[in-house]
Design a binder for these strands. Structure first.
Lengths: 212, 212
DNA sequence: ATGAAACGGTACTGTTTAGTTTACTTAGAA
DNA sequence: TTCTAAGTAAACTAAACAGTACCGTTTCAT
């Protein structure tokens, strides 16, 4: 029998996922430099030998973990959920944007998502190949998706003529980003402090006044 | 002769500054875990023995470096520069905010400042004592300083009655923060991409429309 | 000038780390 | 059952690391 292209069978894929799950927990908790392969093997309940059968080095494993986390990113999907939305009046626009803002903040403030941001920011200069992937997959896709929504809605006459899509996107995401950064990434332990109730609504109200 | 309280003397302080300067460069470049005391001693042009005379451990040195960088932070001063500003009309308000926005973006996009943000975010969970210091010194002071400016200006009748100070501060800083995060911290090497000319002005225009 | 304190250079110690080797065990298909 | 591929556990290697010891040299106040 001649195996042409080494298909990775279901068993091998299960082990690989097991390794990835353990590595994800350790890398997101400790960062690249402080994470040890011993800790990863223990966390994944896999022998160190097996780990090195599936990945040639700690660097490769790290890149694969962050690559997968980036690609299956829920943050992007949140902003892409505006693609099918077409508010008919100002009140609908306000409500749609409010729901989106809540979705964004909720997603960004999850401990796992904050840990991904933290680890990416911390080690991106050591793995430049992640920079392009992350930027193209998360912020750029999200921003341009939202910018498209703005321009589409503007063409339907519900937003001021002189509002630029990119500026409007930064104006919308920015205030929400302050929560993730100032109250998420800059907080040491425990859960991040969620925004005060009503704050998001207030911000969306100001935003709608700015663009209409 | 009895020395009561170990004055540090000018020579000792010079050596300490020399050590701090070298440690700052290495820590901001490599982060805590990947920075080696050998590299720090070499960068500071100081023997390792001397380094350990002034600091008992790598942790203590790291905390002192970040503590000093945080305290003498230029970002806070930028926002505090609004304390003496009292615009007389909407056009003056617009121009004052535009100057402030430019100052903030310019300061935040400096490589050294981005490195401070990066290192703080990366290692804050290992040095919780830095969290409170950093938050209180940089974002909270800056935000409340700006919030005070907004409320003061609102009382002088130039801003809508229902605009809250904190929400207005997040609304102003947020869009500028997107540049520091998306185009600064998420970029691998080289200088960060500066915002397109006119973008800041556009954002400030939208902001003024939102709060007046 | 001289003596003491501070400093530099370098080798050292004990520990941790990435990655390897070896000897043994398990799981599943024929 | 039996053979084979895959996995485990633990010891191991070589390098890097934080921190220390030693000794010769510089600095500076008296």
């Amino acid at each position: 029998m001649v195996t042409v292209s080494e298909e990775p069978g279901p068993r091998a894929r299960a082990k690989r996922d097991q390794i990835l799950a353990g590595a994800r927990r350790v890398f997101l908790r400790d960062g690249f430099a402080a994470a040890s392969t011993d800790a990863i093997a223990a966390e994944a309940k896999v022998s160190k030998r097996t780990l090195y059968v599936y990945y040639p080095s700690k660097e490769d494993l790290f890149v694969d973990v962050l690559r997968k986390l980036t690609i299956e990113n829920p943050q992007t999907r949140a902003l892409e959920s505006m693609e099918g939305i077409s508010p008919e009046n100002r009140e609908e626009l306000r409500r749609d944007l409010f729901e989106l803002a809540q979705k964004i903040v909720t997603t960004m403030m999850q401990p796992d998502y904050l840990a991904l941001l933290r680890t990416t920011i911390a080690d991106i200069h050591r793995f430049p190949q992640l920079s392009g992937l992350f930027r193209a997959t998360v912020p750029e896709r999200a921003m341009s998706s939202f910018a498209l929504f703005i321009e589409r809605t503007r063409e339907r006459g519900m937003i001021r003529e002189d509002v630029d899509g990119e500026a409007a996107a930064r104006m919308f995401v920015g205030p929400l980003l302050t929560y993730a950064v100032l109250d998420g990434l800059f907080v040491a332990g425990g859960p991040p402090r969620k925004p005060a109730p009503g704050r998001i609504e207030e911000i969306v109200d100001m935003y709608v006044k700015a663009i209409t």
